[in-house]
Simulated scan of single mutants.
Amino acid sequence: MPRISDDQDPMIVFEDVSKRFKLRHARSLKRTVMDAVQRRTIAEEFTAVNGLSFEVRPGEAVALMGKNGSGKSTTLKLLSGVLRPSDGWIRVRGRIAGLLEVGAGFHPELTGRENIYMNASILGMTKKETDERFDQIVEFSELAGFIDTEVKRYSSGMYARLGFSVAIHTELDVLLVDEVLSVGDAEFQAKCNTKLKELKEQGKTMFIVSHSAAQLKKLCDRGIVLERGRKVHDGSLDEALKIIAPKKK
């Protein structure tokens, strides 16, 4: 297997990666038994990502694009380690931080304060590191008045604020963001975009899923477009945007 070792090597490598899921259809008990007796297939296989290969160099900000169901979120979950590939291999160098779903990594019965420490630990931070960054995390999230409230009482926007704030305050090398910044008010979204630009200027590697062309143009130069789990474009962001939203004649 290849070795990722020095600073000139890619931060991310996908090599012929595929991910398949079993889809089981809802059936009556009688139908399920009859299908089993007659040895009929009661589940179908769905390929969410199909033979995907790409590399991301240090400091690149890449937009992952495609219509709903194209495999974007599955790709990010494979990259983060939430899912394992059915075929192929993935290599990542450095510490990954990400916000893949609203509320991901949070326990609803714990307070915002407790979830900061738990989520930071999942992202690889020590308690000392979290202690040092705690006030910054809370200040950025603008949730000081709710930090000792159980997060099950949070709105989706509050979840996104806290999750994003924890993610960007870790010692990260690669940042993954999956559309969650569309949740919340315009002022906070602008604040998040400013922070993302700062991380880009610091040379952090970013992988971003967003339907906002304006946001992607500010952050990314390269676009990867997926269609039914396959890569159909990897190159210029402008060309990628034309594929996603072609101009009407």
Rank of each mutant, 00 (worst) to 15 (best):
G145E: 11
D131Y: 05
A61K: 03
I224H: 04
S182R: 06
F46G: 14
E114R: 08
I12Y: 00
L181G: 03
E139L: 12
G105A: 07
E101K: 13
V209G: 04
M118I: 15
S53I: 04
N119E: 01
L100W: 07
R228C: 08
A167H: 10
C192Y: 15
V232I: 15
Q189K: 11
G69T: 02
D6M: 12
K248V: 02
K67L: 12
L216H: 00
E139C: 15
L176P: 00
A160V: 12
G124N: 10
E139T: 12
K204A: 07
K218T: 10
I4P: 10
A26R: 12
V62C: 05
L100A: 10
S80C: 11
F134L: 14
G51K: 06
R95K: 10
H25G: 10
K242Q: 04
V225C: 10
K197V: 07
F54D: 00
E101W: 15
G59Y: 07
F188V: 12
A61S: 10
L216D: 00
I168A: 06
Q189D: 02
V37E: 02
A186G: 00
E101M: 14
K231V: 03
K127H: 10
A186W: 08
L196K: 02
V174S: 01
A63N: 04
D135V: 15
M118Q: 06
E114A: 14
D16R: 15
L241W: 00
F164H: 14
E60F: 02
M125I: 15
S53D: 04
I90S: 08
K249L: 05
K242H: 05
T170F: 09
P85T: 09
R222C: 11
R24T: 08
K242V: 13
C220N: 01
M125Q: 14
G163M: 07
I147M: 02
G98N: 04
E109R: 15
F106R: 08
D16V: 13
A240P: 04
V166C: 10
R39H: 11
I12F: 00
D234M: 03
I42N: 11
L219F: 09
P246D: 02
A160M: 15
S28K: 02
D131G: 13
D16E: 12
T111V: 05
M11I: 05
G124E: 07
L83E: 09
R93E: 00
D185I: 14
Y159G: 03
V177Y: 01
N115A: 11
K195W: 06
D185S: 11
G184W: 07
M11T: 09
Q8M: 13
Q189A: 07
A120Q: 02
K218I: 09
D135M: 09
T130D: 03
R93D: 07
R113I: 08
D148N: 13
L226W: 01
M158L: 15
S121N: 08
L181H: 14
Q136I: 07
R161Q: 03
T75R: 06
C220L: 12
T130M: 11
L162M: 05
E171F: 01
P85D: 03
S156Y: 13
V92I: 13
E55L: 11
T126G: 10
E45M: 08
V180N: 00
D221C: 13
R24M: 07
A167G: 05
C220T: 04
G112R: 04
A190F: 14
G51W: 04
I168M: 08
S18C: 13
V82I: 15
V17D: 00
R31S: 14
M118T: 12
L175I: 03
G88N: 05
A167E: 02
L241M: 08
E187K: 11
G71R: 00
